[in-house]
Design a protein around this nucleic acid. Structure first.
Lengths: 248, 248
DNA sequence: CGGAATGTTGAGGTTACTCAAAATAAGTGG
DNA sequence: CCACTTATTTTGAGTAACCTCAACATTCCG
């Protein structure tokens, strides 16, 4: 028997590539598609859980994530990558990229890409735009880890991912595919797996959101948004149980 | 009597600007300096603690920081800005920029800057490089807030800032100017002021680092690095007191 | 069917928070 | 330079959120 066939069809030519409208090359006019194709060094496939060593690639199908290990064997997930995302990392650096699901991607030549960007300022700006979005996302996350409690962090991340999926047409308003294990959530949110589990249970119990079998179902978007925004102020008791009641 | 004179001399022409070697325009050749000057809409000065409403500017002297407010009146500091940094933000967005010290800066015209970058791919790449550094810094911070304890977060931030200063020649290996209040540290690290104070006290007590009167003095760089890297593993008991001793 | 990975639940401990107050330092007007 | 006010730092006591450890249940997959 041949190896299990990929669940994700391989990308065809750049001209017909389904994710191109959302990726780095979205601004490149049709007649220059061949230049895009020229930056492509290879098309590759990674199984779920496998590290990806290529230092520049454009994700075509599947999810990936970038993380950093701690000496104690823990990890901090720095970002999740969805189809269409450009992913970059130094081979030398402390950061690692791992496939979250089976994933296929186009490996790009850093040299050729840089050369292309050096000539085409629009492409360079499109690249900058992507970096700027990354930064905005990281700033949101930083705010989460710094000033939101477990429930707020979780709600915020769920909404972030749902929003990114929706932008690609992969998710509707009330849910979408979300192939994360609770361990991934924990490592992205700076929490323990057990605590994430309890927070998810709370969302489930209160019919706010449901995560199971790789799908997220948002049952009460307003409540989820209120939690994500911030623990207390904007949410007028949409959830009964936010920890035990305050003494005062 | 005229208003208290600024402590920071105003920038002269772009050609002789002291921070240009470290800023966005570092790659612009000498004969095109006039184009740089053309993107400059104004030179302005902000007093310590004042908000800066300009949406694109290049910091010339002094410090600033970008932060986000929570409905409860708390804040998360997202980044600190040093001389030479390009600072951007949406006026509409949730983020605010505030001068940390008295600061002078060149306000840039977003239109003219974009036009310049649209023509000059090198400038666009230089801009992208800055964004990439921002992202790397934010990733480090995210790791701090997610997986490091208070002492680790503090050590890491102090080293980060010291490193950035050193790159500009403003700090030496064993210290430099650091005009932050403990409240800024707390809001950047996701801690309470009191806890930051205790952590600083511990660094002081153990002769690792000293922060007072707007200056940081690093007494034991190795120990500080060990703390920053991660709580336990790489640090062979350089500090006696890391919380109370473990029972086991 | 059996093993491994993942999810769930409980008990007890630790870090960091909150509240409160005192001690310093930094400004300000006289 | 001093009296006064205000901001910042420091210390303490009690508490809450989250963690760790340890089982156990469940799902996944060969």
């Amino acid at each position: 028997m041949p190896p299990k066939p990929s669940l994700t069809p391989l990308p065809g030519s750049c001209a017909t590539c389904g994710v191109r409208p959302h990726d780095l090359f979205r601004a490149v006019p049709a007649e220059q598609i061949d230049k895009v194709a020229a930056t492509r060094a290879a098309v590759r496939l990674a199984r779920a859980g496998q590290p990806i060593h290529d230092t520049v690639f454009s994700l075509f199908a599947g999810w990936a994530f970038t993380w950093r290990a701690t000496p104690e064997g823990r990890r901090q997930i720095l970002d999740f990558h969805l189809p269409g995302d450009l992913v970059e990392h130094d081979e030398a650096g402390e950061e690692t990229v791992t496939a979250l699901t089976d994933a296929s991607f186009c490996v790009l030549s850093r040299e050729r890409l840089c050369a292309f960007m050096g000539r085409d300022a629009c492409l360079a700006m499109s690249y900058a735009e992507g970096l700027s979005e990354d930064r905005a996302r990281l700033r949101e996350r930083l705010t989460s880890l710094g000033r939101r409690d477990a429930l707020g962090r979780l709600a915020h991340l769920l909404l972030e991912l749902q929003g990114r999926l929706a932008k690609r047409g992969t998710a509707s308003g009330d849910g979408g595919p979300l192939p994360l294990r609770q361990a991934h959530l924990a490592d992205a949110l700076g929490l323990s797996v057990e605590h994430v589990n309890r927070a998810l249970a709370q969302l489930r119990r209160n019919r706010v959101a449901l995560l199971r079998k790789g799908r997220l179902e948002i049952l009460d978007r307003a409540a989820l948004g209120a939690l994500a925004d911030w623990p207390d102020a904007p949410a007028p008791a949409l959830l009964a149980t936010r920890g035990r009641a305050r003494p005062g």
